[in-house]
């Protein structure tokens, strides 16, 4: 009986760890608009390291994106609503 309880306790603790880090990575990933599948797997497989990797990839992804909301550039939304165009 003790073996069963230990089995449940150890697996429960490990699953809590994995699911917990998966959730944290998902939240951070959604902040950086990263794919959900990627952030879930990265968090579940790598734990705290996955969280770090999500942050690094998130920063790199957002850094590489060209800025569309420049002060000197008209966004497509603004263009559509411009009555003089």
């Amino acid at each position: 009986m003790a073996g069963v309880f230990t089995y449940i306790a150890i697996f429960g603790m490990t699953l809590t760890w994995i699911i917990g880090w998966m959730g944290i990575s998902m939240i951070i990933g959604s902040f950086f608009q990263l794919p959900l599948k990627t952030t879930c797997l990265v968090g579940a497989l790598l734990g705290p390291l996955g969280f770090m990797l999500t942050v690094i990839i998130g920063f790199l992804e957002n850094h590489d994106k060209p800025s569309t909301h420049s002060a000197f550039q008209v966004t497509p939304t603004q263009e559509a609503w411009d009555p003089f165009l």
């Binding site: 990627t38 797997l41 990265v42 990797l53």
Partner: peptide, 14 residues
């Protein structure tokens, strides 16, 4: 870790 990284490096946008 090594096995996990083999999977992670295949994911988009990693």
């Amino acid at each position: 870790f090594a096995l996990a990284f083999m999977i992670v490096r295949r994911l988009t946008p990693v």
